[in-house]
Design a protein around this nucleic acid. Structure first.
Lengths: 106, 106
DNA sequence: AACATATATCGTATATTTACGATATATAAG
DNA sequence: CTTATATATCGTAAATATACGATATATGTT
């Protein structure tokens, strides 16, 4: 019956309204070349801070901050204060949920 | 050695410039609520035509057609002429590539 | 408290996306 | 070849996203 449950979950192609909104927000967040690059950078350098990201990209600090906000709001990225800086990482839990949901839905 | 190759491919987190562009275009395409709904609809009703989709959505035919173009250009969706109508389906090959790439990259 | 450093937010210009009605195109039927 | 039906494209208005400089906030240091 554990197996049956797993199969049921694996086949279930519906999301609650909030899950669906989050799922779409994640697609939207990654559907921008700058933000996609940021995701790749954080994957490569977990714990990097805003300055690292700004140095790595051809855009102004204010714009980086704006993009980080979109990524954070989608749930894909987490930032935690470390002294005067903020360290950014992929939010593993939410990224895994995204990956599982992609497999499940399509 | 087949196993090693598989592992190598599974771990490879880089995409060519064109693959990367397509990957981002797919995220962008699905990052819109109307287009996401269209994807779900085509998943549920493969081979549906534009009229079916128009009837299912709260937007004008011209707008549906525009969104379908975005989905087609991303590679996620294929349309083939069937008489005077166009039948739409998810492009399984490309959707599977997307799913595999999501697993591989993140 | 004053200062330096790191990041976020504000205001705003520009670019892109979204949506529509009108119109063009393309196929099948008569 | 005219008509009906299905879809795509055009032109355009309105909404949203992107980018920037200027400024605010927040933390650690002196």
């Amino acid at each position: 019956m554990m197996t049956e449950l797993k199969e049921k979950l694996a086949e279930n192609k519906t999301l609650s309204r909030l899950e669906r909104e989050r799922f779409i927000a994640m697609f939207k967040a990654m559907g921008n070349p700058i933000r996609y690059e940021m995701m790749e950078y954080m994957l490569k350098f977990p714990g990097c801070n805003t300055t690292n990201i700004v140095d790595h990209l051809p855009i102004a600090q204010a714009t980086v901050s704006q993009h980080l906000k979109v990524l954070k709001e989608s749930g894909l990225v987490s930032g935690e204060l470390e002294g005067p800086a903020t360290c950014y990482c992929l939010n593993d839990e939410n990224v895994n949920w995204f990956k599982e949901t992609v497999q499940r839905i399509f």
